[in-house]
């Protein structure tokens, strides 16, 4: 051999898989759409849960005492007395008696002003504002309050809004379960699509696989090639899908939809959860794609000799 040995070509080694394997545009589009839908489902579930959390917190942070008009008692005095009793309880922040005028003001939008006879008996309310989480932690003894009001001989009933809070929580739970189920289904669909595509590209390039095998490549070496190729596919489609999901989410928030519709739509709240979810989506998509491709290729290769 001469002294001037030829230099090996510079640059890295070429990719062993053909450039087109696992890089079909339709596959990329399908994967991106699946990631987009999965992000929307996750954001929606999270949004519903957030919303429900706000509503139930609001509901649970207050009590209403209703003083029914009874013939022989002065409802205004009863309301003031009930407020005093409530105010004395632990966990209660404020207790505000509402007078007959307040009750009339509440009815005005429906009945118009001055259309009610002065002697019409109206129930009066006492608004009780609780310290945060006091009701859920059991620091406010509602039954105790009811008992004391009964002892005063008032026709009073305490409403802690728990019926509403339960209903809201149930609805939120349903929305959340739905969102998570969709997420699971979409992940499964993405894995199946990737497995299908990996098998197809394996079958399409039997020549390459045979050459690798006959050069002594182990199955896991070949599976690793597909794993890397499909990891990149997953990450790229994940980036595109998550970006679109973020855009839609921001768009919904800016669009000021009515609250009842927004309950099921992902609202952009730039809190850590949303950012982590959208940031992790490409990585999760990549991992799902890589694992799925690896398993599909490995099981196909086992069938050969």
């Amino acid at each position: 051999m001469s002294d001037d040995l030829p230099r090996p070509p510079s640059g890295g080694a070429g990719a062993l898989l053909p450039p087109d394997a696992g890089r079909d545009r339709p596959l990329f589009v399908v994967a991106a759409i699946l990631v987009f839908l999965a992000c929307i489902a996750a954001l929606g579930a999270r949004g519903a849960w957030n919303q429900a959390q706000n509503w139930t917190t609001e509901l649970e942070s207050s009590l209403t005492i209703q003083i029914r008009p009874v013939d022989d008692r002065d409802p205004d005095a009863d309301a003031r007395r009930a407020a005093e009793i409530a105010q004395a309880l632990p966990g209660v922040r404020t207790a505000t008696p509402r007078t007959r005028d307040d009750a009339l003001a509440l009815l005005t939008p429906w009945l118009g002003e001055g259309n009610l006879p002065d002697d019409l008996p109206l129930p009066l309310m006492v608004e009780v504002e609780l310290e945060p989480r006091a009701a859920r932690d059991g620091r406010v003894a509602i039954s105790d309050l009811q008992a004391r009001l009964d002892a005063e001989g008032m026709a009073a009933s305490v409403d802690d809004h728990s019926r509403w809070a339960r209903a809201v929580r149930r609805a939120a739970g349903t929305a959340q379960t739905l969102g998570l189920s969709l997420l699971a289904l979409l992940t499964g669909a993405a894995a199946a699509v990737i497995a299908f595509a990996a098998r197809a590209s394996l079958a399409a390039r039997t020549d390459v696989i045979d050459a690798l095998h006959l050069c002594g490549a182990e199955d896991r070496f070949i599976a690793g090639l597909f794993q890397r190729r499909f990891f990149m596919l997953g990450v790229k489609s994940g980036l595109v899908g998550a970006l679109f999901a973020a855009c839609v989410s921001i768009g919904v928030s800016l669009g000021q939809s009515p609250a009842d519709i927004a309950f099921f739509l992902p609202q952009w709240a730039a809190n850590p959860f949303e950012l982590i979810l959208l940031g992790a989506a490409p990585l999760l998509a990549g991992l799902t794609s890589a694992l799925s491709a690896r398993l599909a290729v490995a099981s196909d290769l086992r069938g050969r000799w």
Partner: peptide
């Protein structure tokens, strides 16, 4: 392998 250079083709058994 037509998508690999001559060098990479020859290096294949070592690479695997």
């Amino acid at each position: 392998l037509n998508h690999l250079s001559v060098f990479d083709n020859v290096a294949l058994p070592l690479r695997v």
